[in-house]
Design a binder for these strands. Structure first.
Lengths: 195, 195
DNA sequence: CAATTAACCTAACGATCGTTCGGCAGGGAG
DNA sequence: CTCCCTGCCGAACGATCGTTAGGTTAATTG
């Protein structure tokens, strides 16, 4: 009933699509590009996915779901606002660095989705932002954080953190842990928390 | 020798192209889209520009040149590292907020340029980053700034600041001045400078 | 006046796009 | 064995792409 290669072509299509979407952009990547990189013919892709947009949809949805659940788990393990902020930033940087290809696509190709597909992704992103904003709001109310507008601060933190996908490489000068630490410290400082 | 409408079509083409490139992305925008929005026929665009990529090239180059020269001027008017950092961030946010369409395109469509055109833009971006990194390095040497890796810090600051194009609208809840102030304060805090 | 040029047009070029149709191989099920 | 389903294929569909060739108009120049 189940072949030993079950889903292997599908997974390979997702992998090469993510890589191509990152390198060329969604609209500059053709189904023929994807097929060639996956070792099959363009028509065969449609045995696994309904459309080119469906591939992008699955890539973005998968990453954002993992990002959101990781952040929730990390925040739940901390016991105060400062700890939760640090935990969220830590998982944010770690996930964006280790899955940079997916993260890059998820952060830059939202325009390419249409209608309800785009709204579904926006819904996940909103929940993620609200998770962070709740932490910031609690920190301000507790008096442990000192910042201006909470929403603005959340945009600052997320933009800063997401930026790691644009430059960090595992073989580069800085280790993942060193990078994560400096991002977390920057986040805490931005919120008026001494380290 | 000079018509009273000199360059008005050209300017209009740049304006509508920037708007379309931001809304749809470069590759999802067709020459026919641009022509329709500018009130002319596709073939007429080629009287003003050599190619679709040439339009993008001019948009990105123009914005980055203005960004770089504005930052240089602002930094020159300050007299210490802290003042220069604040001045650079202030002009960065202000320019990204007031020219958000251009800034968005310049920050997201680098992939769409090919060969030497892309390298020319990268050269400008590198000079901009170096301007900021010099300020940070001086601040660390003076002892007025306390941060880990200087390059990493510059990426954090620029990613945070550039992010303003993704959410701020002039008709929104927060005024430009309030937004600029919170970004500058966040930058100073990130660099270990008390406010 | 004639000559030139800027600005724009219609029409069409070849290429490439996402997608679909119909079929073929092969392995498991009845 | 026959039947069916999975996975993949060749071939082609209509649409759209960036771009070009050649022509028209109106204004400017000498």
């Amino acid at each position: 009933m189940e072949s030993s290669q079950q889903g292997s072509s599908r997974k390979r299509l997702l992998d090469v699509s993510a890589r191509l979407f990152r390198e060329l952009g969604f609209h500059a990547t053709s189904m023929r590009d994807i097929a060639r990189a996956a070792g099959m013919r363009p028509a065969s892709i449609y045995h696994h996915f309904d459309s080119k947009e469906a591939i992008l949809r699955e890539l973005m949805w998968g990453f954002l779901v993992e990002l959101l659940s990781s952040a929730r788990d990390a925040a739940a393990r901390a016991h105060d606002a400062r700890g939760r902020l640090g935990a969220i930033m830590r998982t944010h940087i770690r996930l964006h660095a280790t899955k940079a290809t997916l993260a890059f696509v998820a952060d830059t190709e939202l325009r390419a989705l249409q209608g309800v597909a785009q709204q579904e992704i926006l819904m996940l992103r909103d929940r993620y932002e609200e998770l962070l904003q709740d932490v910031l709001r609690h920190g301000v109310e507790e008096g442990t954080m000192h910042l201006g507008d909470v929403k603005l601060a959340s945009y600052q933190l997320l933009a800063m953190g997401t930026g790691v996908v644009f430059w960090w490489r595992p073989e580069g000068r800085l280790s993942l842990e060193a990078v994560v630490d400096q991002y977390v410290e920057a986040a805490l400082r931005m919120c008026g928390i001494a380290t």
